[in-house]
């Protein structure tokens, strides 16, 4: 049962990537590469399951098995700059050590982080929560992953079974992809709860009144035909003026076909927008945005 569910996770990511490549030309390069990487990651995931790995073996297994495969795919299908950097890096530094630092709290360069994460992420995803816990370092509080102590990559609103129920918000881990419930109106980085310091940057056309068209008086462009059309009706930037961090939020009730981790990767214009506002993402995603 679990295996079935877990396997479909990869096909879901693949399905969504294919959908978004069609829809968002600006994300074609990132998603095209991600699609290639997904095959490699699924193979790593499957191999981890085969081997029933001990937590202490994660770094070594990643360095020996996963990293070379990720490097190969990245040189083959990734952007030129990444490929060139990986070739160098592979000869230069002890890969095992990079992975260990990624599992711990150490600082890594963008390329190192990419390599460690692309290779080791699927390994953590394949392990059970106890093993993940034993293999990783990090604080365990509501703003960190309960399994590995990592910081959240993204936030999402779940779908609910009924129309009139607003579902919980969840954070999804940047390291092991575990999701955990989190307060709707709080900063996922510093915990700020004062809503005047929490900015929600959403596109015109993405709120209820605009989506339903013209219920609200004096709404600019109200009326079915004239209403503003959002390109990202299910995505928003949750920013915090207190710590100057942001996280992208995926509203699954707005787009039930969305797969948060994929949509987050593809939402480049929103990342560029947030950067322009002087906000930094809590954790850069797999592709470094």
């Amino acid at each position: 049962m679990t295996t079935l569910l877990e396997t479909s996770k990869w096909s879901e990511r693949r399905r969504r990537s294919a959908e978004l490549v069609e829809r968002w030309a600006f994300a074609a390069e990132v998603l095209g590469f991600y699609q290639a990487l997904l095959d490699t990651q699924e193979a790593i995931f499957a191999e981890t399951r085969e081997r029933s790995l001990e937590p202490s073996q994660v770094a070594a297994f990643s360095a020996e098995f996963a990293v070379p495969r990720v490097i190969e795919t990245s040189i083959d299908r990734g952007p030129e700059r990444l490929g060139a950097a990986l070739l160098e890096r592979f000869h230069e530094v002890e890969v095992d050590e990079i992975v260990r630092r990624w599992l711990g709290d150490g600082a890594l360069s963008a390329v190192e982080r990419y390599l460690a994460r692309a290779a080791t992420g699927p390994i953590l995803e394949a392990l059970d929560q106890n093993a993940v816990s034993a293999a990783t370092e990090g604080p365990r509080d509501d703003r960190h992953c309960p399994a590995c102590g990592g910081v959240p990559q993204l936030s999402y609103f779940a779908t609910s079974a009924e129309d009139l129920v607003t579902a919980h918000r969840y954070l999804e881990c940047s390291r092991c992809a575990t999701a955990w419930p989190f307060t709707r109106m709080a900063c996922a980085s510093c915990g700020e709860e004062e809503t005047k310091n929490l900015s929600v940057f959403s596109e015109a056309g993405s709120l209820e009144a605009e989506l339903s068209g013209g219920i609200v008086k004096h709404l600019a462009g109200a009326g079915k035909d004239a209403r503003p059309v959002a390109q990202f009706p299910h995505l928003r930037v949750d920013g915090c003026q207190t710590c100057k961090h942001y996280i992208l939020n995926v509203d699954l009730s707005r787009d039930g076909r969305a797969v948060p981790v994929v949509d987050e990767l593809a939402a480049l214009p929103l990342d560029l927008y947030a950067k322009e506002l002087g906000l930094t993402k809590i954790a850069p995603n797999l592709m470094g945005f």
């Binding site: 600006f26 390069e29 940057f201 214009p269 560029l272």
Partner: peptide, 19 residues
Amino acid sequence: SELGFDLAKATAIKRELRI
């Protein structure tokens, strides 16, 4: 981008966004 992705198209879309 840092890893070498071409941001030209995404930047163009960002400019159009009404946020």
